[in-house]
Design a protein around this nucleic acid. Structure first.
Lengths: 128, 128
DNA sequence: ATCCGTGCAAAATATTTGCACGATC
DNA sequence: GATCGTGCAAATATTTTGCACGGAT
């Protein structure tokens, strides 16, 4: 039923790469371009929408006004470098533990959370 | 040196109100309008920029694509209701404690963080 | 023949800036 | 008279949608 979709395939392939997280649409497009897979911004966008509906990708908000995507899977938090924009992962969820106490103090029923840590990455720390 | 600025004053007054957090520009404008203080969107925006530069206001990202502002001051986290958009405050910072461990495991030097908790507020929980 | 993937361009959403006018200093 | 606050409209930045074409089924 499915026809070849080189754009979508290439997008999925990049999302699955565990060494990068929080791709913006533009970053994906640029990376595709460098791999000789020219694709329209809207095609990348639609690929992401579809991959998200299929449960392959998930959209994450990293608080910089850009839509970012990564492979859906284990929950984790992100650290974003405020200098170069690089995104890394914090494997442990430090929010879970506090959830009960927060629900009690606020009256909210918690469903999800987004934690973005901001700082300087090791590379940028080494610079002046 | 400063001339009367009813828009900016009214904006600041609302930000300082401790019963509301995370105002969007549009919410502020609507609230001003109801208080018979018609103001242009851009005037509210510029008031916020100025108030932020003065250290009175701070911009917070609550992950819904809108710029949100509140009085600068004590650090705290936010809970946003996914149904009605209402924003409340979580006084305690649950991130501080984990910061050291995160810096060690990621190599980042942490400078700030944004935690947005998502769920249902007490009012919406009471609805069907 | 139909359906789906793609590119191109326009719409939609939200923020930011340019310009002119009038009020305040 | 110069400066600052404001409204109006245009410029940006990004995401989202409409449309048409062409290839795969």
């Amino acid at each position: 039923m499915s026809r070849p979709s080189h754009v979508r395939d290439a997008v999925a392939e990049r999302l699955l790469d565990p060494s990068r997280h929080g791709w913006t649409i533009e970053e994906l497009q640029r990376d595709l371009h460098q791999a000789k897979i020219p694709a329209d911004y809207s095609s990348v966008f639609r690929s992401l929408v579809l991959l998200e509906r299929r449960g392959v990708a998930q959209r994450v908000e990293l608080g910089d006004g850009k839509a970012r995507y990564e492979a859906s899977g284990e929950h984790h938090e992100h650290v974003r470098c405020e200098r170069c924009g690089d995104v890394s992962v914090v494997p442990d969820c430090i929010v879970e533990e506090a959830a009960d106490e927060i629900e009690r103090s606020t009256g909210f029923r918690l469903q999800a959370h987004r934690l973005v840590l901001l700082g300087l990455c090791p590379d940028c720390l080494a610079l002046p």
